[in-house]
Simulated scan of single mutants.
Amino acid sequence: MRKHNPKNERIKRRYFIFLEEAKRMKSTSVDQVAAALSQFEAFTKHKDFAAFHIEDARKFKRNLAETVSPDTGKPLAKGTIYSRLMALKTFFEWLAGQSGYRSRLTYADAAYFNPSNRDTEIAKTVREKRVATFDEIRRALFAMPNTTDIEKRNRAVMAFIAMTGARDGAVASFKVKDVDMSRRRVYQDARHANTKFSKSFHTDFCPVGEDIEQVSRTILRT
């Protein structure tokens, strides 16, 4: 049994470049698309994408529904199935417009990857996650060790996150000049900070109390 199809590999490479350069998709997201395509190819025994038939999509959906996760020993989560099917649907929609495939595929063919409405609703359901209360954050902060320089830094970073509500990835990439203690705000500058969706914006400090602000100042040296 062959483990890859050279023609498929070439068109996949073009698609991944399209996702990264035209759709501005992160490499981690492209990797997830690649994994979904690889799973589908393995299921079809690496059949040429140009020979795709709607029955391939229907059978693959049934196969996913019966697949057991090696990590949990349980059927794949609806959200996992949904994301893989949507990755395949989007790929075949794109493929239907490419030279060498237009006469073999239609955009409607890709719709056969759609899960049922019920499974879609379940996949999109977001369960509310419990987050720590501010009192719990305060107790944890002042219970942290505060002897070495590293311990003081860690404590100050936690205080700063509590004060700004900024994401940890963004905080790690801030510069001291981004923080304006006199105006009580931080500028999340996407030019160097790892902000969500690469957007720049100001964040005002939360009213956490002078004691927590003093802890955060130890790392800002202001």
Rank of each mutant, 00 (worst) to 15 (best):
H202Q: 11
T147Q: 08
G169S: 14
K45L: 13
E128C: 06
T195C: 12
A111G: 06
K45C: 11
A42Q: 15
S38K: 12
N63A: 08
M1G: 12
D31G: 10
E210Y: 09
F142Q: 04
P145T: 02
Q188M: 15
E151C: 04
A110E: 06
L19W: 02
R102A: 08
E136K: 02
R24H: 15
T28A: 14
N8M: 10
S27E: 13
A123P: 00
T125R: 12
K74E: 05
T106R: 03
I81Q: 06
K124I: 04
A166P: 08
T148V: 01
A42Y: 13
Y15K: 03
F174V: 11
T203C: 14
K199V: 14
R139F: 03
N63P: 00
A51H: 12
A42E: 15
N63D: 07
K59A: 09
M86H: 09
F197E: 15
F16N: 05
K152P: 09
E93K: 13
Q188N: 13
V171M: 14
F160A: 08
N154K: 06
T148I: 01
S69R: 00
Y82P: 00
A110P: 02
L95S: 03
M1V: 10
F160K: 06
A132V: 07
S83A: 12
A143M: 04
S83Q: 12
D180P: 13
T218A: 10
S173F: 09
F197G: 15
M86T: 09
K3S: 07
I161T: 06
T44A: 09
K196Q: 14
F142E: 00
T67F: 03
T164C: 07
L105I: 02
F197I: 14
T106P: 01
K196A: 15
S182K: 15
M158P: 01
H202K: 11
Q39A: 10
S116A: 02
K12Q: 10
D135H: 05
R139K: 05
M163F: 05
Y112P: 00
F40S: 07
I81R: 05
E151R: 01
V208N: 00
D178S: 06
F52W: 06
R14E: 14
F40D: 08
K3A: 07
D189I: 12
I137Q: 10
D31Q: 12
F201I: 11
E136C: 01
S38A: 12
V186N: 12
E9L: 07
F160D: 08
K3L: 11
R221L: 09
V33P: 06
R153L: 10
N194F: 10
L95N: 02
H46G: 08
A108H: 03
K177A: 15
N154F: 06
A172R: 09
A162K: 01
R10L: 08
Q98F: 03
A87D: 05
R13D: 09
E210Q: 10
D119H: 07
V157R: 02
F60G: 02
R184W: 11
K12Y: 08
R58L: 04
E21V: 15
E121D: 04
V157T: 05
E21T: 14
F60D: 01
